[in-house]
Structures are given as C-alpha cells and as structure tokens.
Design a protein around this nucleic acid. Sequence first.
DNA 1: TCCTGTTATGCTCACATAGAGTATAACTGA
DNA 2: TCAGTTATACTCTATGTGAGCATAACAGGA
Lengths: 293, 293
Amino acid sequence: MTARSSSIHVGLNAVILAVTEDRPRVLTRTHEPSGLPALPFGPLDPLEDRTLELGLRGWVREQTGLELGYVEQLYTFGDSDRDPFTTANGRVISVAYLALVKEHALTTGPAQWRDVYSFLPWEDRREGPSPLLDEEILPALRHWEKAEPGRKERVQVAFGLGRSRWDAERVLERYELLWEAGLAAAQEMALDHRRMLATALGRVRGKVRYRPVVFELMPKAFTLLQIQRVVESLAGVGLHKQNFRRLLEKGGLVEGTGESFAETGGRPAELFRFRRSVVAERPASGVPYPSRG
Amino acid sequence: MTARSSSIHVGLNAVILAVTEDRPRVLTRTHEPSGLPALPFGPLDPLEDRTLELGLRGWVREQTGLELGYVEQLYTFGDSDRDPFTTANGRVISVAYLALVKEHALTTGPAQWRDVYSFLPWEDRREGPSPLLDEEILPALRHWEKAEPGRKERVQVAFGLGRSRWDAERVLERYELLWEAGLAAAQEMALDHRRMLATALGRVRGKVRYRPVVFELMPKAFTLLQIQRVVESLAGVGLHKQNFRRLLEKGGLVEGTGESFAETGGRPAELFRFRRSVVAERPASGVPYPSRG
DNA sequence: TCCTGTTATGCTCACATAGAGTATAACTGA
DNA sequence: TCAGTTATACTCTATGTGAGCATAACAGGA
C-alpha cells in the first residue's frame, strides 16, 4: 500500500470570492500548459503545515499577498481523469477550500479577479432567466433529453421547469448536467476548476442563508440596500426589498450606527453594522431570501 | 514539490450508519496498534480506482461484504497530529465518506456494529438531556469557562443553555469544545475517528431535514411511527407525533400501500412506501422536525 | 418654489405553516 | 367488557412569508 500511494500527490486549491460592483468575482491565475484561467493552487508541505487550512493560508499569502479571513473546506477532488497533464506521472488529489474576502481586496503578483458569471452565465437570473439559457441551452437540452428516459426529469429539476422551481443552490447539479450533455465547452477553465467553482457558488448560496457569512464580504458599515445587492449578486436572483429589510432587522443581525449615507440620489440611507453578538445568541442566523417571484 | 509530497499518504475512511432497534449504529473494526474501535479504512489505488468513491465502495465490499447504497463525501482530515503512529513515516491524509445502509445489513469479516451514542452519549436527548451532561460535563465546563473570556458564550451556544436552544446539528462543535476542555477522554475511538463520527452525525441530522435520505435506512414498507423512530434516533430528540405525520403526508414524501401492520398491540397502522417521484418534483424535500419542547 | 424622479422606510393584509393539544377509532389481552 | 395501547383526524393559535401600498427625505430642473 505505501509503495503504491507514493504515486499520489496532494494539493490544495482555493476558490477565493469577493463581490465588486454587484458581481461576484473569483481570483484566478493562468494555467501554464493550457493557457486557461485556473484557480490558485499550492502544495501541502507535509513537514511544515500543521493543518491543511494553515497550509492553504500560507501559500495564498505568498502567491497573492492576501490574508484570508473566512475559510472553509469545500470538497476533495480525486477523479483519475481530472488532470490529464499529470495523470501519466501519478494521481493528483486536490482539497478545495472556499474563502471570502472583502471587495477591493488588494492582491500582488499575477493573480486576476474575474466575474464568476462569465464562467457560469446561466446562474445569473437577476434580470430574469439568462438569454443564453432560453436561446441555446434549453433547446439543445431538449434534444439530449430524448436519448434516455429520466433525463427530462433531471433537466426539469435542475433548471426549475415544469412544476419545479429554480433552486439557486443547485449550481453543481446544473453544471454536471450540462457537462454530460456536452454543453459546457465554452467559458472554459483549466482542469476541473469550473466544477470547483460551481461547487463553491452552490455552497456560498446555501451558507449565506443560515450563517452570517455575507458580512465577510462587506465593509464595516453599509446600507441595507448594499447588503441586499451583495446577497442578490451571490444568489443570482432579485429579492423583495421591504421584506429583506424587515427580516434582516428582526433577525437582529444588524444594528444602525446613527450615521447616514447620501450618495444614491434619493433619500439618504442609514448605515448599519453587523452585530457580532448574534452569532452567540442565535444558533442558525443567516440572511433571508424573500423571493420576488 | 513532488519530491516532498512523496511522503504524503492518502486513505479513505467510511462512516457507515444504520438504525437498529431505535439506535443509530456505526460499523467499526479494531485498530491494531491501540486496540480501540476504529472506522473502516482502506487505501486509494491510484491506478485502479477511477474515483475516490468507487475506490471506497470497492474495499468496503471486500472488507465487509456490504454493497453500499447512499454515499457522500464528508470531509478530508489532514492535521499533522491526527495519526501519531505514522507521523514519523510521513503524513496521512484521510478522505472520509458517509454511507447509509438498511438495518440488519449483513456483514462479513471482523467488522462490528456499535451504538453511535456510546461514543457521543450527550447527543441522545430523547429522554431529556443526558444525565452525564448535567452531572459531569456541565459542572466541569463551568470551571473551564472561567479561564478565558468568550468560552462561556461558546458553551451556551453549543449546548443550548441560556437564551440558546439545543441545535441537534452542532455535533462537531460540541465534540471539539469537549476535546479542548479535556473532557473527551472516555468512550474513545482510535486516532481522530471520533471526530469523523461527530462530523457524520451532524451531517445526517442536517441532511435528513432537506433531502429524503431517511428512506435509505428504512425497509420498503414501513409505518409512520417506524419512520418517526428512525428520525428521532438520528436527531437524538423526540418529535411531535401528530404533526410529524401531518407534515410527512402533506409533503407527499410517502403514500399508503393499503396494507396494514398489526404487531404493536394497539390499533393497526397503515403501511407506507416512499414516493420516489417527489425527488423530481420538489427541490428540497426532507423529513420534518416538529419539535416537542 | 414646485414638480419629478429616486431611494428609504413604515405599515397592512392575506395566506401558509408550525407547535400544541383534544377527540375519536381500532386493535390486544385480562 | 374494560383497561391499555397505538393510530388517526381535527382544532386553535401564534408566527412567518409574500406582496403591495403609502409616506418620507433627498437631488435637480422647470
């Protein structure tokens, strides 16, 4: 066993997300063999890194200058075909982490922020279903459905057709379906990194609902509309403004600072801050998703 | 990097759960160096196993004769101190999986079913808070709290004291707190396997609520009380019977078979079966948790 | 100054849902 | 026939959610 496992290599990938100008961004680099955008990758130093997470924080700091705040383990990717460039030399297992940083986080080195929805365009439905979906994806899927029974059902659930509703969290399910159907060719990333990104987006969308993680993406003080825009950016759907406010305030997640913010053209908005103490008080406190049709 | 990573070993652990006689059980083996109960462990064959999950299914079949049904990846454990026996020879990373099998699943070989709550006794609150909690754990924690500010808050959230409510899903949080406080010595398992078990229990408790995974643990036909008992076993809390039935039926998760089951001494109960089609219809269908105080 | 456009904020209403309890039905065994 | 046990049907109430209306507070132009 030990003889064989010596041909296994373990690495760490980071999906680092921020929200800038109402768009979720992901930090990328260029993957050398292919020239495609890729997620930052670093090795695990088995002697120095006490935990996987500390290892990750270390090389992210070195590669990009970013000091990560919120970090959580996402998934471990280990399919044998995930890295065609190194399969010949042995297997590469990658433990992927999700990290959230504040907008305008400064980075050094060759890393680059890119729009998450440029890789998964059908996931942004703030202006209604993406035209790409109705004009290209769904027509193509209608063909693909016919080849096997059961496929139609999967499409309906994944994309919220028929009696099903669009479920913002099923990002990975949609991506894998499109991959199977051979429709995921455009908007490429290196290796299986688009799958990692889809996993990450699904995870934040879920997490935001029941843990106060949005605040990791916000400045210290913010208006309620600003926080709503950030949630909408991630969720990819529009939310009902008045209900969002009501639920957020009632939940005790935020408190007014007394100051106001008057750069929007309309009535000045009150500035709020995150009430750190709710984390202790309320077990499962997240931000509400009052849908808007 | 490649030279160094050759001292990293990758393995797979399985947390295989079943519910027998109203108790959740976990499949264990004996860990040789220590003689303690341990979770089944197997290597990843980098040449033969196309995916990590297929590798896991393979060696579980060989070691125990079990053909796993529902399987999901749980977490990847890689702290440097997690395996003191092999740290000297290099780092062992373990990808842990959760699997659910039906009660009375037959196994071959030296594997053994054990009561999950024998390792995490404070997690079973069906008869009210565990006496162990009130008589030993909480008094000891009150001492530990005083040493540092913020600890008291953590204890309250984790164990549902003060204004907080007991949150059945915070299994790992409780375990890690007790570990830090030096109160997790008894009921031992090998290495960090008790942490894996805690992770698994927390995960099923959550999953059962929003995905129809309980049915993986049930026979084909069952009464509503039987399914309630299984949910209660996992959740570790009692549920309100009438509301449980109402919500389950309204959710469309089950349908009556017309037959009835008359071995309980009282009025015979109708037998139900799982409606597989809801998985397609309703995005997030799980079993309700109507609490009972 | 007044009107228009824009954003912020307060409030109401209908409806669905969850928690809790009561009442009745259908069986077993003494 | 009665006590004990489990199953099942309802009812009542508090709370939560989706949706919309109304008003407040600013800017800028007529």
